[in-house]
Every structure is written in C-alpha cells, then in structure tokens.
Amino acid sequence: MSQNIQTFTSDEPIVRYKNITKSFGEHTVLKELDLDILPGEKVALIGPSGSGKTTIARLLMTLESPTSGTIEVDGEMLWHMHKRGRLISANEKHLHRVRSKIGMVFQHFNLFPHMTILRNVTEALIHVLKIPKAEANHRALEILERVGLRDHTNHYPSQLSGGQKQRVAIARALVMQPRIMLFDEVTSALDPELVGEVLDVIKAIASEGDMTMILITHEMDFARDVADRIIFTDGGVIVEQGTPAELFENPKSARLQSFLSRFMKGQPDRSADDRVAAGTE
C-alpha cells in the first residue's frame, strides 16, 4: 500500500498498522488492515459511516484494543511489549509511555464540564506532564490565544458554543505537544455555521507544524486542502488511497465513485451518521 506515496520515502513510518483486525462480537469492523503513516504526514480518512475509519483512530489512541495484529508507534509496539524475550499484552505503564506521543480531538468534544476552560487545558499539563502551575497557565493561555479563546478562560464548557468548545478541545490536545494528533469527525456534531471556525484552526495547525495528523472527516473540501494523502475505507478495508488529486479527480473503484457522487449531491445525513457512530462505540 505504501508504494502509493511518492513524497515521503526517506523516513521510517511513525505509525504502522500490521494486519489489524477488530471485531465487536460477531461484527468485524476492520479486516486485516495494513497502513503506514510517515512523520509529519497529514492523512485524511474518508468513507461511509461504519466503514471502520473511526476505529482506526480509536485503536491508536488505546480506546479500543485490536482483536489481532500489531500497531507500532515510532518504532515501538503500542499494544504489546517484550518481556523475557516473549511478546505479551502491554500493561498500563507501557501504554502510558507510548500514549504520550498521541493526542486526540473527539466528535463530541468531551470537555470536562466541572472545570473552567483554563483548567481543561492545564489539567493534564500539571498532573500528567508535571509542569509547574504557573508555567502550565502560561502555555495554556498561549494556546487559547491561538484558537481565539483567550477571553473565555474562566468560563465553563456549558457556557460556550459548539464551535468554541471544539476549539478548546483542540487547544487541550495541542498543549500536550503530541507528535501525532487524531481528529475524529470534529465538525460532525456542530451546527453548519460553526464548522468553518474549527476547520480554520485545524488548517492553521497543519500549515505551521511538522505534527503528524490523522483526520477523519466528512468535509471533502477540507480534506482536499489539508491532507497529503486521502484514504477511503469501506466495509473495514482500505479500498483506495492516494493524493487528493488522484482520489477526488480520478477515483478508480466503483465504491469510491458512488461515495463521492453522493457527496457532490449534498452533505450526507448527519443525524443518521451520529446514530450509527453512537451505536458502534
């Protein structure tokens, strides 16, 4: 699969999915998936709901464990570790170490409702990274400035609009300086008029940094703008991948063609999408 990418050949991949299968009971969401992602690469995952794209991100964030196969992050196993020469399931300590390289922004924000905006952003800095409070506040304010929410630091999440909440969630993940950031349908729960402000923030992050980004999205224009590579999943497998130009202008598979043609006619039914996502999570 990785031969499709011409622009990133020099580096070792920062994320490598090897033969990953994920099932929930009888239902298989990912089938023998292989996927390499290079450092600094911006990858957009598109596909119908239930196609397995969210699961790809959740496995990397350790929210879901693979049924079989391995994931490597920066040359190190994520879900497994070596002990006395044998490969065993990772313990919490191992997960904790590898997870420090990864951050995630969720569809439903998942801000902490009992903390102010400032504390939402500083909480993990102080207690996970053990950064002194003054320094943490300083960093948090800087990041909140970048997402345009400097004035809302003492508000609670319930006092913000959906777009503002999602920008706080981005700041909260960003401030931890992960090498890899996951964006899981971050605009799907927003009112249409609030989508733009969130996408602008993500675009700004993408343009300035060498951060590796994995974006799961239904916003095709956004994917085309930001991503180096588009991956189309359907039925738990990668059907097609390549540069935005290759995929959007010249889709090869019939499934991608029909998926894209539905998008040209208009946005997919969001509420139906949410229901399916909630059911599988």
Partner: peptide, 17 residues
C-alpha cells in the same frame, strides 16, 4: 459519560488520575 474517560485517556492520565 464514556467520553469523559476517553478524553482523560487521550490526555494520558493514569487510571487513578
């Protein structure tokens, strides 16, 4: 809500935290 546990996992908090 489960999302709260997921968010704190994503921020790399320990189970105790």
């Amino acid at each position: 809500p489960k999302g709260q546990i997921e968010a704190s996992t994503a921020l790399n908090m320990t189970p105790y935290q």
